[in-house]
Simulated scan of single mutants.
Amino acid sequence: MVSLKDIAGRCGVSVATVSKALNDHSDIGAETKERIRKVANELGYVPNAAAKSMKTNRTHNIGVLFMDDANSGLQHDFFASVLEGFKREVEKEGYDITFISNDRSRPGRDSYLTHARYRRFDGVIIANVHFGDPEVVELVKSDIPVVTIDHIYNDTTTILSDNVGGMTELVDFAVASGHRKIAYIHGADSSVTRTRLVTFHKKMEEYGIETPDEYLMESPYRDTHGAYECTLKLLELENRPTCIFYPDDYASYGGMRAISEKGLKVPDDVSVVGFDGIKVARHIRPRLTTYRQDTEELGRQAGKNLIDLIERPKTTLVQRVVVKGRLLEGDTLKKLN
């Protein structure tokens, strides 16, 4: 195994100089650093992770706690993209990531906090879990740096998609297109759902539009069958809506199937609006009118803020970071005016 001494001998400098150069100390010149790093690469030098961990008191390993009710795992378009952005950001800073097991059926499983301590995670990102779960709350309240995505805890940094801005733009666009009979099939109860629902009601009130109770229905996120069933009920109403908002893009395709089976057309008879802006929605025809969330930036901000909490705890403020998205004007919203 190549040592610092081997590199020092080849470069004609001290072991201390080699160590400082490889750790990017400011008292070593750029030219010297470049020469030492080049020799280190040529010799195949690999830093001793255990020694580095003892010196910095960090393992450079970050835990990821993620789940979803549909058990889609990393096939979950929205969060897979968020996690990819997060992964790229932390790996750029020399960190690895490890998923925290959430299989509660496994005998003798550790709590999330016990798992995190056993793995000696420097920090943890939490996304798309049941945020009221006592084990999640215990982890959030521990001394391990934590960043959450789309859920706010006191004294914890949170990265939020602009749900208020997204719903505002969608309602504005639908109303500007002449729609006043707008139904909303929203997701299961969560802080994201509540934010979107309150914004929907507020905007409709501002426009002086009354939303009948039967226009509001609940279906789990990413559940095409649930959205399909809710849409059938909306289409059976005597005063059926001209436009239906869905909790996410996946759900909207369940709604479109129901509309088609009723012998109706999108958007000629009923307009459809999604939320998320997943890739597949940009390629299927008709193109879905939706609000595209900037998933990569959500992940990048989560990684950046978590590393700041880990490496610069005394100068890093806990904050809420809102990441804006943008409206995608597809072909599923008819202009009535």
Score class of each variant (00 low, 15 high):
residue 5 K to N: 09
residue 6 D to V: 05
residue 9 G to V: 06
residue 9 G to N: 13
residue 11 C to G: 02
residue 12 G to D: 01
residue 12 G to R: 02
residue 13 V to D: 10
residue 15 V to P: 01
residue 18 V to G: 00
residue 21 A to G: 09
residue 22 L to S: 05
residue 24 D to Y: 14
residue 26 S to M: 08
residue 26 S to I: 11
residue 32 T to Q: 09
residue 42 E to I: 04
residue 49 A to G: 07
residue 50 A to E: 10
residue 52 K to P: 09
residue 53 S to Q: 14
residue 53 S to H: 03
residue 56 T to H: 05
residue 61 N to C: 10
residue 61 N to D: 11
residue 64 V to K: 12
residue 65 L to K: 04
residue 67 M to T: 14
residue 72 S to W: 14
residue 75 Q to L: 13
residue 78 F to M: 05
residue 78 F to Y: 12
residue 79 F to T: 12
residue 83 L to A: 08
residue 84 E to R: 15
residue 89 E to F: 00
residue 91 E to Q: 12
residue 92 K to I: 02
residue 93 E to V: 06
residue 96 D to R: 14
residue 97 I to H: 00
residue 101 S to K: 07
residue 102 N to M: 11
residue 105 S to N: 11
residue 105 S to L: 10
residue 108 G to Y: 14
residue 109 R to Q: 08
residue 109 R to H: 13
residue 112 Y to K: 02
residue 113 L to K: 09
residue 116 A to C: 02
residue 124 V to Y: 01
residue 124 V to N: 02
residue 125 I to K: 06
residue 127 A to V: 11
residue 127 A to P: 06
residue 130 H to W: 04
residue 134 P to W: 00
residue 135 E to L: 01
residue 136 V to P: 03
residue 137 V to H: 01
residue 138 E to W: 04
residue 139 L to N: 00
residue 140 V to R: 06
residue 146 V to T: 11
residue 148 T to H: 00
residue 155 D to R: 13
residue 158 T to V: 15
residue 159 I to H: 06
residue 160 L to E: 15
residue 166 G to V: 08
residue 170 L to Q: 06
residue 172 D to Y: 02
residue 176 A to F: 13
residue 176 A to D: 15
residue 180 R to P: 03
residue 181 K to R: 12
residue 183 A to H: 13
residue 186 H to P: 06
residue 186 H to E: 07
residue 189 D to K: 15
residue 192 V to W: 07
residue 198 V to W: 11
residue 199 T to R: 10
residue 199 T to E: 11
residue 201 H to F: 13
residue 222 R to Q: 09
residue 224 T to H: 11
residue 229 E to W: 04
residue 237 L to T: 11
residue 237 L to A: 06
residue 238 E to T: 11
residue 238 E to W: 03
residue 241 P to V: 06
residue 243 C to I: 00
residue 243 C to V: 04
residue 244 I to G: 05
residue 246 Y to M: 01
residue 249 D to Y: 08
residue 252 S to I: 01
residue 255 G to A: 08
residue 255 G to M: 00
residue 257 R to C: 06
residue 257 R to Y: 10
residue 259 I to H: 03
residue 266 V to E: 00
residue 270 V to N: 11
residue 271 S to G: 07
residue 271 S to P: 00
residue 275 F to T: 03
residue 275 F to R: 04
residue 276 D to V: 08
residue 279 K to C: 08
residue 282 R to K: 14
residue 285 R to A: 13
residue 285 R to F: 12
residue 286 P to I: 05
residue 289 T to V: 04
residue 289 T to Y: 03
residue 290 T to E: 10
residue 290 T to S: 11
residue 293 Q to L: 13
residue 293 Q to S: 04
residue 300 R to K: 15
residue 301 Q to L: 07
residue 304 K to A: 04
residue 305 N to P: 07
residue 311 E to P: 13
residue 311 E to H: 12
residue 313 P to T: 14
residue 313 P to W: 06
residue 314 K to S: 12
residue 314 K to A: 14
residue 317 L to M: 12
residue 317 L to E: 14
residue 325 G to A: 07
residue 327 L to K: 01
residue 327 L to Q: 03
residue 333 L to K: 04
